[in-house]
Design a protein around this nucleic acid. Structure first.
Length: 469
RNA sequence: GUCCCCUUCGUCUAGUCAGGCCCAGGACACCAGCCUUUCACGUUGGCGACACGGGUUCAAAUCCCGUAGGGGACGCCA
């Protein structure tokens, strides 16, 4: 049976793109790419109250930023109501579904009662065997769920999971307003779109037996399922907004690289030897759904940050420079486009000490404009004692033609040796003069990137400051 | 409450299917040393876990039984 692999990502556009959502998308995408299959994007917007076009935009942006493309779609379920209705009518005609006149209020009362008495909270079947015209009013359509056997879910991650049909509920498949509901639309779409593998979060595991019943009632072929363990917050509950950042856009805005996020996400529940850093190519080569752990994992910001720091050093400086640009603009550090080659030099000097693009943009600020001296740094290092030394260093630098860091290092070293002074003594005042801070990239690097003119200007300015203090 | 899933350092994980190589390995975080012009990076070392209780076995993190804990689902949401 050489059927092709077809997977789907099926978010509902009711809010931001959750980090768990992109992980699902990521797994599906990798699985498809590994098997030469297709990725279908389907927007599950049957909840007319909560779905918004804005949220659709966020989803599309998020996927694009994560470099997860798709082959078909996006399809919208609201444009496919005819298909769902046809299936519902088929169920009705076959006696596999029936009208239910129970109101939400009635159901709520009975549900609470069942909960109180410790009984399963499923529908009690009141309208299951109604005679024609026995009840009146608005009605929903319920699926007549088989009640006597078992449903086996053959899950690629969790093995075979058995559910008793006595536990199965008569699901509502059509609301009283005529719109179809989730469990029906998923089944119809997955079947009609030829989805071969359904890879989704574990929160859907208990829906799976109901969906299998529907597949069978409709005569559809049941796809393979894989339910991945959820991502938890520090309190071990499903990760959500109240745990802090939970949407892709937030991570993007915090200055994370998509490569790092992908890398982090793939290491949740999976590993390969002692390797921590994975490129997408390596992931495609090494990752397998079969190795996926069953237990949920807690989201660890510290580790993501560390990984991001690694990726900051791994990617070409020109690439980082490109991605740094919006953060520099956002901070108001630059208005015009800086020279790319020069920006790349800035990046090289900062990448060892920046975990995120935001941090890098902050640290880069002194390269672009004059700043106030860090108060503590100025008090400690821009002192009367330091003035003569700084003055002589300025003279030396002024006569220096080669401003490469190697040349600068050599020249300054020789000078200090003559004077019998340790580099340490000059370095800090000079650092504060050039960067306005007490911590910075290496001095000689800074001077090279800054260039002769700015370097001398800044030392001049610092000397003036000392004289005026 | 009912059903289902899960359980190795604080966290992510290796080892569990094929018991001995594991008085449990790696990574993040934390602490200390080294490197060093600052901050970092890097590097070396330290701290730190088989949820618990029974069994089976010469031998159990690994197999069996039980208990406890955590999570998810129970909607005219998806």
């Amino acid at each position: 049976m050489p059927h092709s692999v077809r997977v789907r990502f099926a978010p509902s556009p009711t809010g931001y793109l959750h980090i768990g959502g992109v992980r699902t998308a990521l797994y599906n995408w990798i699985f498809a790419r590994q098997h030469g299959g297709k990725v279908i994007l389907r927007i599950e917007d049957t909840d007319l109250e909560r779905s918004t076009d804005e949220a659709v935009g966020w989803i599309l942006d998020g996927l694009q930023w994560m470099h997860l493309d798709y082959d078909e779609g996006p399809f919208r379920q609201t444009e496919r109501f005819d298909l769902y209705n046809e299936s519902i009518d088929r169920l009705l005609a076959a006696g596999k579904a029936y009208r239910c006149y129970c109101t939400p209020e009635e159901l709520e009362v009975r549900r609470k009662e069942a909960l109180l008495k410790g009984r399963p909270t499923k529908y009690d079947g009141k309208c299951r065997n109604l005679r024609e015209g026995e009840r009146e009013g608005p009605f929903t359509i319920r699926f007549r769920a088989p009640q006597t056997g078992q449903v086996l879910v053959d899950d690629m991650i969790r093995g075979t999971v058995i559910f008793d049909e006595t536990q199965m509920d008569d699901l509502i498949v059509r609301r009283s307003d005529g719109s179809p509901t989730y469990n029906l639309t998923v089944v119809v779409d997955d079947a009609l779109m030829g989805i071969s593998h359904v890879i989704r979060g574990e929160d859907h595991l208990s829906n799976t037996p109901r969906q299998i019943q529907l597949y069978e009632a409709l005569g559809f072929q049941v796809p393979r399922f894989a339910h991945m363990a959820l991502i938890l917050g520090p309190d071990r509950e499903k990760l959500s907004k109240r745990h802090g950042a939970a949407s892709v856009s937030e991570f993007r805005d915090m200055g994370y690289l998509w490569e790092a996020l992908v890398n982090y996400l793939i290491r949740l529940g999976w590993s390969h030897e002692d390797q921590e850093i994975f490129t997408m190519e390596e992931i495609l080569e090494k990752w397998s759904l079969d190795d996926q752990r069953k237990s949920p994992s807690v989201f660890d910001h510290d580790k993501l940050e560390w990984l991001n720091g690694q990726w900051m050093k791994l990617l070409p400086a020109e690439e980082i420079a490109e991605r740094l640009l919006p953060f520099l603009k956002e901070r108001g550090v630059i208005e015009e486009e800086p020279d790319r080659n020069w920006l790349a030099e800035v990046v090289v000097s900062l990448r060892e000490r920046s975990l995120t693009l935001v941090e890098m943009a902050e640290k880069a600020e002194f390269y672009f404009r004059d700043l106030e001296y860090d108060q503590e740094a100025a008090e400690k290092f821009l002192t009367a004692d330091a003035e003569p030394l700084l003055e002589r260093a300025r003279g030396l630098l002024a006569s220096q033609d080669d401003f490469s860091q190697e040349a600068l290092h050599g020249a300054l070293r020789a000078f200090l040796e003559d004077e019998g002074i340790k580099l340490k003594i000059l370095a800090q005042p000079l650092r504060v003069a050039l960067t306005y801070r007490k911590d910075s990239p290496g001095l000689f690097e800074v001077m090279e990137v800054l260039g002769k003119e700015s370097t001398l200007e800044r030392i001049e300015k610092a000397l003036e400051w000392i004289r005026n203090r």
